[in-house]
Amino acid sequence: MLKVSNLSVGRGRISLLNDVNFMLKAGQALVLRGPNGVGKTTLLRCVAGLQDPLLGDINLEGSVAYAAHAEGIKGSMSVFENLKFWADVYGGSMTEEVLLAYKLNDLAQRPAANLSAGQKRRLSLTRMLVTGCDLWIMDEPTASLDAENIALFYMTIDSHLQAGGAALLSAHNDLNINAETLDLAQFCKARSIVTSNFDEPLE
């Protein structure tokens, strides 16, 4: 489903991660691990197509849904309306059952502005379900979740994988799911800079 080869990504002109290679098949999940600032978000943004990689190829088959740190929740719309909007954008369907995945059914009509951080995160995780996409790219999905909801998250990921989906996740601590883990620290050794020939002596 996803094949990343010889990928270099960076912020500005300075590369953060070099020579990243991994593969993801349907039914698999991959956790990208690393400390803050190692380049997890940058790598995910590149795979999601928001940012151009400095070098290398990303081969992607199937549809992709991306969940960033910023959740893009509209406070003046209800939980249901927020989800309905994304379902419409992705051409998916919005059912009451989807709300059950993270137990948002009681909160459905509440304006999203009144949600707690954890509840907002649950809303953003539910959003992935309504997109109906094959590959989920999620940036630190378990941030601000309590133990009960982390368990719900693991269950949702499992059923997504069993349905033939795939997931690319980032985390700075261990995730207790059936997935391979890729430590990004190994890729940030040979940092370089895109010089566009400006490093050559000029005169």
Binding site: R13, I14, I193, T195, S196, F198, D199, L202
Partner: peptide, 9 residues
Amino acid sequence: QRLQVLEGL
């Protein structure tokens, strides 16, 4: 530009 690149290096 060259100065920026060299500083980065």
